[in-house]
Simulated scan of single mutants.
Amino acid sequence: MTKLYIKNMVCNRCKMVVGNVMASLGLSVSHMELGEVTIEEPLEDKKHKLKEELEQLGFELIDDKKSRVIEKVKNLIIDLVHHNGAALQTNLSDYLSAELHQDYAGISNLFSEVEGITIEKYLIAQKIEKVKELLIYDELSLSEIAWQLNYSSVAYLSSQFKKVTGMTPSHFKSLQGNRRKPLDKVG
């Protein structure tokens, strides 16, 4: 068994694409989640080809431990915000510590040092991107969006939205042609 860490693998479509690359190289995937793939066989002879093919698709194999931790933090937050809205009520520091089996202070310091922003700011950026998506879909009211993303109030969501984007949610919604950032570029 070989565990691989892959940068920019942030959604189910990414998992499908990476799975297809693995299959095309004859690699048997035993487990896959955002940012991580476990294959049955050793990778040695196919590593260069895998790296090449992944890079052509915007992914990257991660070899060093610091980068793996950072990518795991990002993927956990993306998954939490964009795919598991109900889980947003958990304490982020406890959640990350439990998932990574590390002290939160160490994770937080490493993330800030490498990324140049705090984990909290990264979380806020992801939440604002989710708010934008939900505003564009126009299926939920602002109060429903605030509740779904665990904001204490619509006013707090609006204030944070304006601080990050420079406009109110209603102004954002009224603009035509809004383009969301790809999830791996948020932050």
Score class of each variant (00 low, 15 high):
K65N: 11
A86K: 13
E133D: 13
G116W: 06
V69R: 02
K46I: 03
H101D: 13
V131R: 03
E113N: 13
E40L: 13
H101T: 07
L96Y: 00
V81H: 04
E60V: 10
K132Q: 11
I77P: 00
H48P: 01
D45R: 11
Q56M: 12
K65H: 12
F59G: 01
I107H: 02
H82Y: 09
A86C: 06
L134S: 01
G58I: 10
E44Q: 12
D79T: 08
I117E: 14
A86P: 04
K132H: 02
V81F: 00
S93V: 04
R68H: 04
P42V: 00
E133T: 15
L96K: 01
E113K: 14
H82K: 08
I124F: 09
K65D: 15
L88H: 00
N75I: 05
E71S: 15
A87L: 14
R68M: 14
E113A: 12
F111N: 02
G116S: 10
E40P: 00
V69H: 02
D45P: 11
Y122F: 15
V73W: 03
I117C: 13
E40W: 09
I119E: 01
I107D: 02
L80Y: 02
I77T: 08
L88V: 03
S108L: 07
K51A: 11
L61Q: 05
V73P: 03
S97A: 15
H101A: 11
H83M: 09
V131K: 03
D64M: 06
K72A: 11
N91Y: 01
Q56N: 14
E115C: 11
E133P: 01
A105I: 14
D94R: 04
K47L: 12
E99F: 03
I117N: 11
I78D: 00
F59W: 05
E133C: 10
E115L: 05
D79N: 14
G58K: 08
F111M: 08
K127W: 07
D103L: 05
G85M: 10
H48R: 12
P42F: 05
E53F: 03
V131M: 00
E60S: 14
I107T: 07
V69W: 04
E41V: 02
G116P: 07
D94E: 15
K46L: 12
V69S: 01
P42D: 11
D63H: 14
Q89M: 07
N75V: 07
I62P: 01
A98D: 15
S112D: 09
V81K: 02
L61S: 06
I77V: 15
E71H: 06
H83T: 07
K127F: 07
D64Y: 08
A105R: 13
K49P: 01
K127V: 07
D64K: 07
D64Q: 08
V73L: 05
S93C: 07
T118P: 01
E71K: 06
Q102N: 11
